[in-house]
Amino acid sequence: MSEESLNNPNISLAALKAGDRAEFARLVDATSNHIYRLALKILRDPQDAEDVLQETYIKALRALPEFEGRSSLSTWLYRIAVNEALMGLRKRRLNLVPVDEDPEEEDAHPGMVLTDWCCLPEDELLSAESRQRLDQAVDELPETLRVVFMLRDMEGLSIRETAEMLGLTETAVKTRLLRARLNLRNQLSLYYAERLTEKSSE
């Protein structure tokens, strides 16, 4: 988990376990925004994301006595949140394809757009409009690819951690990751190629 993304002020696990409400409030304050955004990205529905947010802390409180602190508090909390969000997905029957069944293999190598847009300035690559396009491109990925890409590339989990969290083999994770990345690279290339054309005609 990307520790930086949950800026975690030193929360005392001992205080939490002792039922310290103020400490619990500090934990919620430090982590709730990230957890909500994460759930929103997975579920794409504000109401469902809010449910996940609330359930995460309720489950965490319940599980706290057994938590031994082998991973950091934020990582632990975050796993609960991801699991909760994935359960939400399953409930909505947008089910993640089971382990050994890989979707649409025939499209594994789509034609590739070959524009080199790496030279575009950073403020253009990450303008508000560009960010919107990035979000849109992820949103349009098939569920099975989107979740893998999010956990691995956006949230910084390792291949193994992603596999564990999704109940997939590492090979399946790698395959899906590749397809997600190829797809996104293509989408972004189409978009930035337009920006390049606009620039050269200015």
């Binding site: 993304s5 955004r37 524009t115 590339d153």
Partner: peptide, 19 residues
């Protein structure tokens, strides 16, 4: 080009969003 733009793509997605 494919390698460079894919690396850049992943990079862009890693940039933290304005919070």
């Amino acid at each position: 080009i494919v390698v460079n733009t894919m690396r850049k793509t992943i990079d862009l997605y890693k940039q933290p969003e304005p919070t």
